[in-house]
Amino acid sequence: MPVLVYTENWDGKFKKLSFELVSYASEIAKMMGTSVTALSIGNVEQNELKKPGSYGASKIIEVKDDRLNHLINSAYSSIISQVAESEGANVIVFSNNFTGKALSPRVSVKLKAGLVSGVTALPSNLDPFTVQKKVFTGKAFANVVIKSDIKILTLSQNSFEIIETENNATIEAFTPEFTDNDFRTEVKDVTKVTGKVLLTDAEIVVSGGRGMKGPENWKPIEELAELLVAATACSRPVSDEGWRPHEEHTGQTGKIIAPNLYIACGISGAIQHLAGVSSSKFIVAINKDNDAPIFEAADYGIIGDVNKVLPEIIEAVKELKAES
């Protein structure tokens, strides 16, 4: 009765969060005295396919089919349920990202398995099976008991350390059964953002608010992000104004992120904005108003004008890079 992990790939490479998930699942498996099976759907090369083994998976199941090059909720959730049944898995782990949110509810109904999304830590108890999750958009935590035999968890991103182990995993192909009902949606066009660090995957995020005054002032944010291998983000009014693309909007009604470092430039720190970023490990705030609520959420702050402070930060980072 292994722990089953859905390890997602992006253009044939596993996402970083997939390894985070395997590490997490391995710890649950240890608690339960069982093993981890990773499931990969789509085209992933053999060399890449072995990788979940280095994080604790002892078996990797591969499902390939030309119709599976895009995420199709019905088909994918059907595959995951079939694999869970054939493996006899009683815990299934997803990431709490767009994909996990799309698939886990369908699998939950197929298997009549209780689902807890946005889990932040290992189960605190196995009987009854109890996990902690974020509620009220990051403003509190709840302890939730899953009562069904099969349990499904989606893990909050960046809430578990990636742990490398030595493990030799076996790779097995699995051929799922489909019905026509599994393919009732069709992807007609795809736009990929390339060459940029993905906001939800980023360890460092540089973000700008209305205090940046206009899209023409974003150069230093982009430059700093590039230096730090960071993603760029923004507050809601900034994307509403069209200064920045909607994908960058973080907060209650945008993306919820949890990077190691979030640098907020000219952002007041409204409660709805903080809802999306307060799980960051460290927050830096640059704001000219010493009363701005962002300083209550921040770990480090500079009271000052972004136009003056940002170029100096860039210089200091360059110096640091030159030294090391």
Binding site: S148, Y300, I302
Partner: peptide, 26 residues
Amino acid sequence: ALTEFVSYELPQAKAACKMVDPENVK
């Protein structure tokens, strides 16, 4: 229902923000 919310916790209060002198960004 397959799950039950048994208890709640508030996040731990953050330590006070460390202020850095704007004249010394380094």
